[in-house]
Structures are given as C-alpha cells and as structure tokens.
Amino acid sequence: MSAAMTGTVAAERPTSTFQTFLSRRAGMMPTFAALIILVLLFVGAEAFLRGDFITPGNISALLLDNAYLVILAVGMTFVILTAGIDLSVGSVMAFTGILGAQLLARGVPAWLAIVTMLAGGAVIGLLIGTLVQYFSVQPFIASLAGLFLARGLAYVVSLSSIKVENTGVLWLQTNRIRVGDWYITPTGLIALLTVAVAAFVLHLTRFGRTIYAIGGNEQSARLMGLDVGRTKVAAYVISGFCGGLSGLVLTAYSGAGYPRNGIGTELDAIAAVVIGGTLLTGGRGYVLGSLVGVFVYGTIKTIISFMGAEQSWMQIIIGALLLLFIVVQRAIVARSEQRR
C-alpha cells in the first residue's frame, strides 16, 4: 500500500482542450469508431459502385427501410444501459403488428388500434421488468419468456398475414414529404422523434441519469438514493413500448401484419446498439450511437443487395462486427480493471 503512496499523482489537470474533451467524452470513442465505419462503408460503396451509392434517394431509403429497427434499437439502448438485455423485441414487434392489423380488419378505429398496440408492447415489457427487478430473474431468461409469450400470442391473433387497408395507418408510409430529391415519411419522422425524445430523456432527466447510474454500479446508484427499482422496470417498459411502436411502423411500411415478422430481429437490434458504441456491461453508450449502429447495419444490407450477394452474408458480417466490438469492449474493461 505505502509503496503506492509515495508515487501517486495528485489531481491531474487537463492541459489542452483535446485532453479536456477526452476526459469528458472518453465514453464516446466506440461511437466515433462506428461513425468512421459508416463513413468508410459509404465511401467504399461509392467507389465500388461507381457513384451510384450516395444518392439522396438511397440515403432517404436507408432511414425509411430501417425505421422499425431504429425504434427497437432505441428501446434496447435503455435496457442495455442498465446492464440488461431484451430478447423479446422482435417478437413483440410481430405480435403488436398482427394485433393492430387484426383490430383494423375488425373495424376498430385506427387510434384505438394504435393505442392497443403500444399498450400491448408496454405490458410485455412490464412483465419482463417485474420479473427482472422483483423476482431477480436474469434479464435474458425473463426476456426469453417475453419472446415466447409475444411470439405465441402473435400466432394466437392470426396464423397467417392480415392485410391492412386502413388509410390512416397506411398514410404513415405513403405520405412522402419531399425536399428536392430527399424524402421522408411519417414513419421516418416517428423514428427520428423517438431518437430525439430518448436522447433528451437519457441526458437531461433524473430518470435518464439513473439509467446510466444503474449500469455504472447498481449498488452505488441505490446508495445514492436513486430509485433503482422503478427505473429498471421502466427501462423494460420503454423497450416494450418501442416494440409496439415499431410494430406500428412495420405494419404501415409493409401494409400488413404477419406473425412470422421479426424473427431474429432482436439480435439485429442488439448488434446495432453494440456497434453504435454501447457497452453490453451497461452504463456507457449513446442513443445517437444506436442510430449510427442501425445505419451501419442498413448500409451493409444495402451494399449486399447492390452487389447481388447472399443476404446470409448479412448475419455473418453483423456477427463479426458484433464480435469485434465485444472483444474491444472487453479489452477496455480489462484495462480499467487493471487501473484499480
């Protein structure tokens, strides 16, 4: 002990703005890495595909084609920041999607169908959160149960796909707002709005800071008098709600509800969040990073289809990226453990 006492440094004062930035924003490095990967993907695709890739149409489509995943990734970010995981989101999306389509087909007004979808997602999230927080069930087990429940319920609602004819819901996708060659639909706006609200909540409310605190050290967060229990449950409720919202967006996008939608989508959402720089051990990451992660995901997918390659490469490339980020994260954690 005393050997260390002679040599320890006093308060280190950052000497340059760069160092100040580093000490304040060290946690952003993985997100920057994702951003660089995204830029490289764009530049590479542009060079490779002879200037056909970076077009306003393609980039607009990138957001719209992946709007459902952006929303899922936002919800997943909340859960992963608390050091949890939610494997149910793909199935929740399928369940709420088919539920909404069924309700609309039965003549239920659009607003009521939408509220039911969102509430349905949130209730499944509540179930998972309750199991995790109050019954000490490991998050992946609790959310696997949620996955089972949602997937089974999707088939209970309907065994086959149901077409949506409600103009109100379809309007979300068909109404294109154009600015020059760029365009966006209400579904894209919903996705961006979700990101904005989540960023606001995570950074500027006590609830959001508590989410980060739980991921940093749950015990400490409790000692600081933060409401750990309710916040943790709320993270899963938010994730479930986002599942419902993405069910709505996907239904509008595809014009139908289908109970086999979103199989494996939870893994895509996790991959996007991790690639976007959020640590699976919790406490570090940004919801904007998750947006970048989804764009990386979507860009790879677009490139693969441009090249006419097998879509199965998608899962392999995303798996490899996930592995890369996990190993790098592990190295970061191992180094900070050594510092202690």
Partner: peptide
C-alpha cells in the same frame, strides 16, 4: 454475450 455472436452469425453460416 459470447454465445450471442454465434447465435447471430451461425444461421447466416448455415444459409451460406
């Protein structure tokens, strides 16, 4: 986390 990687990539490998 470790087995998640293969859970994701494995089916892609199988499809390939």
């Amino acid at each position: 986390v470790a087995t998640l990687v293969l859970m994701l990539a494995g089916r892609g490998v199988a499809l390939l």
